[in-house]
Nucleic acid binder design. Structure first.
Length: 477
RNA sequence: CGGGGUGUAGCGCAGCUGGCAGCGCACCGCGUUUGGGACGCGGGGGUCGGCGGUUCAAGUCCGCCCACCCCGACCA
């Protein structure tokens, strides 16, 4: 049934992605321009992402809070670069309760300004610092062209906002959060990332310095998976976030902000997915294991379901789904759960019952390769090992793919060629003009300037002037 | 905002020179099936994007409007 198959991942990556999001029931198009509905399966995935991050945030002393969705327009105008960066994509409320508002309210595109206002009110003394607050919310940016999860008008994320006494502390916080994101991406989502500093033109509107983690998607394009910003004293000065230090002298705070959005779901799809559909990393999968019972006669059905019930009891420690749907063939169910990316499938049929076994089918290995028979006794241990193996294999495969498609061109001609279908690491003089020229020539942008740098220097890949840093260039989502 | 395109059932589409609004998938019912995407029979579902015009008669011809999609500038 060709119409049951996904569009080809290798021939039409974009259409493969769109169809997969819809057919795996992660999200659907909303009746509001540019907005999506995150469906239960997609939200379950997001909840698991939230749990992994929230735990890391709390372990480093952060607490959660909630701030209003509406922000007075004047707040945004207080930080010059910030308002310039965000004005084109603001949604603005001008009427409330049937009356025209005195001052328009902006639907938050991010919360630095209202945070700044409140922090100014709350922070008086060095004893009040640091303030370490995180928000789980949604924000709105009126994007021109939208795509499910990757770029929607409203998106769900977390935004952390901290205030510190010194530049050093703010910088340490910025780097700590970047590392937490990298740890999450690599060890939970199985997505290898490059940590680095954003160029001047790519940094957050109003930040002193921005950092990102960048991941390579299955079509070699780059995706910024999370950002962490050192806002310097910019927002503190705009909102007068000040404190008295131990010597009774008035100081400006240093603030940071950092965020990770539902966009990482897009990354997980595009890094791990294959022609069959999603492949979810076991640590995030809503269902880690699905059991498909197989039976013809009523007699077989009884025996099979009894075995399934015993397995279910043994596997209580896993996120388990038993597919008891009637009237669907096993083949249909296999394909269905493969589309949804369940990392491990357990098939239980009359043959398994007779032998006291269960058939394991690993999602990351194609067809028969991933299938083998396992004794029902002690199945929990076997499942745990198999899930660990899938988790590790996904990361390894993604890392190898990135390695194969990351190049170190020495000439500009070579550079132009490699960024057609891969990443380029190259010396860059740091000048905006070179960056812009490269974008014009190749559509590739600086993704970041990796933290891991070789010593020494070399000629800028574009202009040949001496450069001291290597940058990562790629076409990006 | 510039360039291109599309609107007919939930989705994908057909509908010619105007004459009873259809097909496939999906959905509902019954039965047979079930170790890699089952099948038979029966059934429900439409302001043909909107408004106006021409005509005995408009999904079809004409005019205006609206919405959505793709490509560029912008972007977590």
């Amino acid at each position: 049934m060709s119409e049951d198959r996904l569009p080809s991942r290798s021939d039409n990556f974009a259409e493969w992605y769109n169809q997969l999001v819809l057919r795996a029931e992660l999200a659907d198009y909303a009746p509001v321009r540019g907005c999506m509905v995150v469906m239960p399966y997609g939200w379950a995935l997001w909840e698991n992402i939230q749990a992994a991050l929230d735990q890391r945030f709390k372990a480093t002393g952060h607490v959660n809070a909630a701030f209003p969705m509406l922000i007075p327009m004047s707040f945004l105008e207080k930080e010059k670069e910030h308002v310039e960066g965000f004005s084109p994509e603001l949604a603005v409320v001008t009427i409330g309760g049937g009356e025209k508002l005195e001052e328009p309210l902006v639907v938050r595109p991010t919360s630095e300004t209202i945070i700044g206002h409140m922090y100014a009110k709350w922070i008086k003394s060095y004893r009040d610092l640091p303030v370490l607050i995180n928000l789980w919310n949604s924000v709105m940016r009126w994007e021109m062209r939208t795509r499910l999860f990757l770029r929607t008008a409203e998106f769900y994320w977390q935004e952390g906002h901290t205030a510190h006494a010194t530049a050093e502390e703010a910088q340490a916080e910025t780097m700590q959060m970047l590392d937490i994101y990298a740890d999450f991406a690599e060890n939970v989502a199985a997505v290898p990332v490059v940590r680095g500093r954003k160029s001047e033109s790519e940094k957050f509107a109003g930040a002193l310095r921005s950092y990102s983690i960048e991941a390579m998607m299955g079509d070699t394009r780059a995706l910024q998976a999370a950002t962490s910003h050192n806002l310097g004293e910019n927002f503190a000065r705009a909102f007068e976030i000040r404190y008295l230090d131990a010597a009774n002298s008035l100081q400006y705070c240093w603030t940071t902000s950092w965020g990770l959005s539902t966009r990482v779901i897009g990354a997980i799809i595009m890094v791990h997915g294959d022609e069959q559909g999603l492949i979810l990393p076991p640590r995030l999968a809503p269902h880690q294991v699905v059991i498909v019972p197989i039976h013809k006669t009523d007699q077989e059905k009884d025996a099979v379901l009894q075995a399934v019930a015993q397995l279910e009891a043994q596997l209580a420690g896993f996120r388990l789904k038993v597919d008891r749907r009637d009237g669907l063939t096993p083949g249909f169910k296999f394909n269905d759960w493969e589309m949804r990316g369940v990392p491990l499938r357990l098939e239980v049929g009359p043959k398994d019952v007779a032998q006291g076994t269960v058939t394991f089918a690993r999602r990351d290995l194609p067809g028969k390769q991933g299938k083998h028979s396992v004794p029902q006794e002690g199945v929990a241990r076997a499942v745990a090992e198999e899930l660990e193996a899938v988790q590790a294999a996904l990361f390894k495969r993604a890392l190898e793919f990135r390695r194969e498609h990351t190049h170190q061109p020495r000439t500009y001609a070579e550079f132009r060629q490699v960024v057609e279908a891969g990443w380029a690491e190259a010396w860059w003089c740091g000048r905006r003009e070179c960056e812009a020229a490269i974008k014009e020539d190749t559509r590739a942008t600086t993704r970041n300037i990796p933290l891991d740098q070789p010593s020494g220097g070399g000629p800028c890949i574009r202009c040949g002037e001496p450069a001291t840093e290597r940058a990562l260039f790629a076409r990006a989502y």
